[in-house]
Structure formats: C-alpha cells, structure tokens
Design a binder for these strands. Structure first.
Length: 152
DNA sequence: TTTATGATTGTTCCC
DNA sequence: GGGAACAATCATAAA
C-alpha cells in the first residue's frame, strides 16, 4: 500500500455549478497543450531505475509541473496546523496522513476552491510550456541560456 | 554542505 | 486502461 492511490476521479465537475467551467477549461486546455507538453515532459521523466528523487535541475528553463488541488490544500493545511500545533516538529509525518484523511472527508464545495486554483495554475503551466516548446523548436535551447539564467 | 527520505493526492504521460 | 513519475514541504539523517 502507500503507493499511489488508484485513479479515483477528483469528483465530477458536473456535481457542482461552482467552478466546473474552470475544470472544463482545464480539460480543454490540457487537450491542446498535451502534444506540446509531451515534447518537454519527456526529459522530465527519469528512468525507472533512477532513485525516487528529482534530478534537482534537469532544465532550469523548464516550467515545473503545477501543484494539484490537494497540494494547495496541503499548503493551507500545513500553515494552519503549524499555528495550532507549534510544538509538533515532525510535521512531515503528520501532515501527509492527516491532510490526506481530511481531504477525503471534505465535500466538493470545500475542495472546489482548491481545484479552482489548481486549474488556473495548470493553465499557466500549459501556456508556459507552449512558449517553452516554441522556443525549443526555434532552436533557442542554448545551454548558455540556462546558465545565464542564474546570473541575472 | 549537500542531498535523500517520507507522507499525502492529483495530474500527466507512455506502453 | 493502468502503472509510474513528479509536483510542495521540511525536519532529519546520511554521505
């Protein structure tokens, strides 16, 4: 267990009239950006034999994957938890489980604001990736560029 | 000093 | 369709 949970849909967007539009948008935009993302998400993937951790910086210019709704909730939850439990230092052990459990008990209406944020971020991510892909195809993937990025 | 670990769910991609 | 990787965070451990 503890592996990745089966793909249980993040609640049907049609369940609520709240920001279902955003969710629809996300679906549409992802469909369009899918091809583009594939171009640059490929190098993002590490070989299966690689350790679990991220390669730190494969391509600094590459936009990172946007956080999911759960992650935005996690961020909120973490701050709140820190305020309520300033003595608890082993947050990494508690937050994950506690937040996960609470997430499951939350209603769609409670979650929808986080889905909203995640959707916006995802759209930004897709736009950034489209731009990035264009630059790559234009031959703008200069190594010195990634380096100079630091020396701004 | 630097990097990996763990714990969670959602999203995305490849096979 | 399903499996796998990666996204954030951060105290702690290990190299």
């Amino acid at each position: 267990m503890t592996k990745r949970a089966p793909k249980s849909g993040p609640l049907s967007p049609s369940c609520s009239g709240g920001s279902s539009r955003n969710l629809e948008l996300a679906v549409k935009s992802s469909e369009g950006a899918r091809r583009s993302t594939r171009l640059r998400l490929q190098p993002l993937r590490k070989p299966k034999t690689s350790p679990k951790k991220k390669p730190v910086k494969l391509q600094t210019k590459m936009p990172k994957k946007p956080a999911t709704a759960f992650f935005f909730f996690l961020d909120d939850f973490r701050k709140q938890y820190q305020e309520e439990n300033p003595d608890v230092k082993s947050m990494r052990e508690v937050i994950g489980k506690t937040c996960g459990e609470k997430w499951k008990t939350m209603t769609y209406e409670e979650k929808v604001k986080y889905y909203d944020i995640a959707t916006e971020k995802r759209e930004e991510f897709h736009r950034a990736m489209t731009e990035y892909t264009k630059r790559m195809e234009s031959g703008a993937h200069d190594e010195s560029e990634t380096d100079s990025d630091y020396s701004e």
